[in-house]
Design a protein around this nucleic acid. Sequence first.
DNA 1: AAAACAAACTAAATTGATTTAGTAAATTCT
DNA 2: AGAATTTACTAAATCAATTTAGTTTGTTTT
Lengths: 335, 335
Amino acid sequence: MLTIKDIARKAGVSVATVSKVMNGYDDIGEVTKAKVLKIIEENNYRPNANAQSLRTNKSFLVGLFFKDHQDSGVKHPFFRGIISGLEEKLLENNYDMILFSANWEDQFSYLEKCQFRNVDGAILMGMPKDDPKLAELLNAKIPSVFIDLDMSAERASYIISDNEEGARKAVRHLTELGHQKIATIEGEEITVPTQKRLAGYKAEMKAQNLEIRDEWVIQGRFSVDGGYQAMKEILRLEDKPTAIFCQGDEIAVGAMQAIKEAGLKVPDDFSIVGFDDIEISQYLNPALTTVCQKKEEMGIEAANMVIELINNQEEKVEPEIIDTELIVRNSTRKL
Amino acid sequence: MLTIKDIARKAGVSVATVSKVMNGYDDIGEVTKAKVLKIIEENNYRPNANAQSLRTNKSFLVGLFFKDHQDSGVKHPFFRGIISGLEEKLLENNYDMILFSANWEDQFSYLEKCQFRNVDGAILMGMPKDDPKLAELLNAKIPSVFIDLDMSAERASYIISDNEEGARKAVRHLTELGHQKIATIEGEEITVPTQKRLAGYKAEMKAQNLEIRDEWVIQGRFSVDGGYQAMKEILRLEDKPTAIFCQGDEIAVGAMQAIKEAGLKVPDDFSIVGFDDIEISQYLNPALTTVCQKKEEMGIEAANMVIELINNQEEKVEPEIIDTELIVRNSTRKL
DNA sequence: AAAACAAACTAAATTGATTTAGTAAATTCT
DNA sequence: AGAATTTACTAAATCAATTTAGTTTGTTTT
């Protein structure tokens, strides 16, 4: 590997001069500058990121943490869209992403991983609200952006979908179709999205003067199996709802399976609305009506936010709430 | 941030001693060792990876490159499973992953990215066979593992599914159901999987004494739309096949859409077999019969291979061919 | 008791960059 | 012409670690 020394020798100048040329200092003559640039080009020289990072304390590295409650980690369809958006924006700004899942939890804390790798900032998704290790990271003032967790601090901000309004859209759509008996299947109760979606469900039900029965609010998990089990519970009910707002598309998939197994049909027997709009939703049969989260946009914005936090030591970065969009497909029908 | 100097001062020893304690040198007394370890523990000290990497020329970083032909990058369902397997194994060995997609292509080569970040090894997926920048990486002898590209070199190896036998399984399944007129929709012809799957299709057709018509071998792309367009072509044929071997699950999804739009049914009018077994396949309606690639296993093995290449300067690492499994669901039926 | 050896430590060089402070030469000012 | 200033460079310190080559002790050996 070629180093800055080699370039300096080849160009017949000092190491300092080469460094200054690369970093745009203005006390270098045009002739020298051109000569050095030529040598750099010819030899295809690139500085060593470790040395740079060590000296400048800047790594152009963003740490990506994700956790989900089913251990599916990076596989989760919701995360994928976000990562894709992140990637686009970070790359544009010369940052690379380092992938930290949360399997090493007991060995390292978030902060330790960040410090060890010297990341300039961190993006965290799917973290539970009560994670004790989050405080440590916040205290260290590592620029951090949370996705789906409304955690603000001196050098941290967050981005989240408007889950409450999204849930209201889902319920409103069902009521507009004439449904009155509307159940909901929740995700993990510990997460912010679940709490907000539930709040939205309740708020809209109230606004429409509809009855919220306890037995129509089912605790579940953000997974196909979670939806399947929850729907079985619903099917056992004496007084069944005519529509179900599933708080995640995977839940909806599971619910639809349970309905099919019971010999019933969507949307004939139950109208189903999901949340997320993961890729598969459009290809389900019937195609799933769902509340779309703008995942790529969230990724792009999260990248913007973390870059801003990195660059502006002082300023606070305001949290962003991303709106959702109801996508009507074939899993809902007029009652 | 605490450095090794701080620890040395607190422990009343030299920097060298602290370093030796951490790296298991045997010329340190028991008492000193215990004392240093205690200070490290108390202060929660972790060495700086950049400094370590700079000095030792070892980063415990593996670069992850991926590209697909639809620009879906990390979103592609096939990659996801692999990344998940990779992650598990690499973490176990204290490696972190750095995510390089291929959007920066014109700016940097693979080699440049690797050198810049000082990665110990690289894992590359979805690369086209004729990528000119691959040679450069190989020449530099960066330990590399290719996924889905049979590229072997001094410090490079590969892992790939047994695509040919997988394709034969698909065709054999269809013939066992009595199908004789079997078409296939290809993915991008430039990729190794496409070439092997096509070879498998032809080999099995021959073995069964079935006619391979040119018009039943459709060029397509590994995407829903690719499958959709290709199926439309098939539907225009005078003499239609009764079964279609789609060389990717996404192709199958598109094909099934085209069939549905034409007012026809799967498996009644066409039996469909896919390839990959991505997550959605089981939830399609009808659930897709497909050839499953063991994605997580491929990820785990790829990680093992790259670690072996990193550790053993000398030895060659043999390529691995991973077998596939036919998963029969509801998109195929007896003729 | 002197010589040889082993045990337990440390000083200093090194890795590849950046940056501060300083210097020599060229230019401008009076 | 001499002083002041500007221009264009470089030497050396620095970042946080590892590692080589010593250096002190203390212990054996003869």
